[in-house]
Design a protein around this nucleic acid. Sequence first.
DNA 1: CGGCCGCTTGATGAGTGTCAAGCGCCGTGG
DNA 2: CCACGGCGCTTGACACTCATCAAGCGGCCG
Lengths: 241, 241
Amino acid sequence: MSFKQLFSSKRRPQVSCESCSLGRLCIPQGLSEHEVELVSRIVKTHRTLSKGDHLYHSGEWFHRFLALKSGTVKLVTVDGSGNEYIVDFVMPGELLGFDGLSGERYTCSAIALETVSYCELPPHQLERLGREIPKLSQILLQLSGSQFQLGIQRVILSRRQADERLAAFLAHLSERYRTRGFSPTEFRLSMTRQDIGNYLGLAPETVSRLVSQFEAAGLIQVQGKMVRILDLDGLLRFCPQ
Amino acid sequence: MSFKQLFSSKRRPQVSCESCSLGRLCIPQGLSEHEVELVSRIVKTHRTLSKGDHLYHSGEWFHRFLALKSGTVKLVTVDGSGNEYIVDFVMPGELLGFDGLSGERYTCSAIALETVSYCELPPHQLERLGREIPKLSQILLQLSGSQFQLGIQRVILSRRQADERLAAFLAHLSERYRTRGFSPTEFRLSMTRQDIGNYLGLAPETVSRLVSQFEAAGLIQVQGKMVRILDLDGLLRFCPQ
DNA sequence: CGGCCGCTTGATGAGTGTCAAGCGCCGTGG
DNA sequence: CCACGGCGCTTGACACTCATCAAGCGGCCG
């Protein structure tokens, strides 16, 4: 641990969930003020990492949940042949670590796509606190259930045509930015075309072609990583459901 | 409720988890005898349904977990256009209802593929009991985490070639029958080729062709729904990882 | 300013979906 | 018990989507 980190943890011995703007997305949703304070006490100092850094590694012992405060993270798993599979992109207010829940170790690596900051939640203390705050166990179970829902959405998506997948991906991103108070029509893609392709089960070339195609159709406007959505309804018309 | 069911629930006011042969697969894993008894008390009379019956419907209120005792169930979700997507096949000892966890309603329908019997677990009582038995909350969270793992496995599978997918599917089935004390080399497929195709993201024709291909290669032997695995290692050589 | 990596666009082919037709098994009803 | 009907399964022919290979461009970071 660097001197700077020591210093910082001395000045900020605990993170305040009460003042965190992401409360309603993160764990505190539905907890009373007092309960949030109790949770706040077991949250470890929040850290910062740079693009490309690992928040945790696949195979490492599952020893913490992470609550993302800023930046974007990709969740990657690797098969025996070394092929990488992007399982999810994680945005501020969302929890990381569910891939460690079923066994003793993480099955994915969490990698920062840009500078990220996050809080740490030790599962054992969370569990212990859950006995005092039943609602907390419930929230945790519910969040875990949402991960299952995401899996179902992926199943549906993986059966659709390439253009529908990309449209749904962009619409989903837009929606997530909106709920976080950012512009839903203009944002930066923090992942590469290859990452998008990997996530959607498409070759990066296909993603590139479709982006150009959407642009030609007047649905979006693209300059490198910046995206402007011109016709969200048009995009949504592509999407399943 | 029929007279027969009334009668049966009188003779068997509660199901005994203690005597259930699936204990080590189901919830009781890792609980003490006394704890299992407490769980046993909130388990509702176990029911029986026939092929094609719904254990629960998509959109229905999430009011119970189900523990499958015998038979096979398919978990199906439907998109806005009416397309069906098989999310999972559930085997004895496994829990159903995780798709209701994140919201208030089930997002899938659970449909019996053959005669099934199952137990019912009210989530509220399970939750309440979780305060007395912390280990129970932990197990539930862990089981929910396993669902996430299954999702990851599906992601990996969906990126592989058709033959690898089918090989992995058969090998997985074999493994699951083995852990349940059935023959891992000879079993009946309780789902149609169409169901398998839907689950694997393949056309039923493709499944049929691959089955024939595997048979020609001497890996399996098939007669309608009955499968005999002749060369499990050969099948596993197809599988990712 | 230079090099590298990521992005774009084109040409081609493989894998698998789709359409079509025939078979056979199973359950039903006469 | 047998005949019939239907549905699920199999196999073939063809089309189409998308991956792959290849080459050139451009932006970002060192």
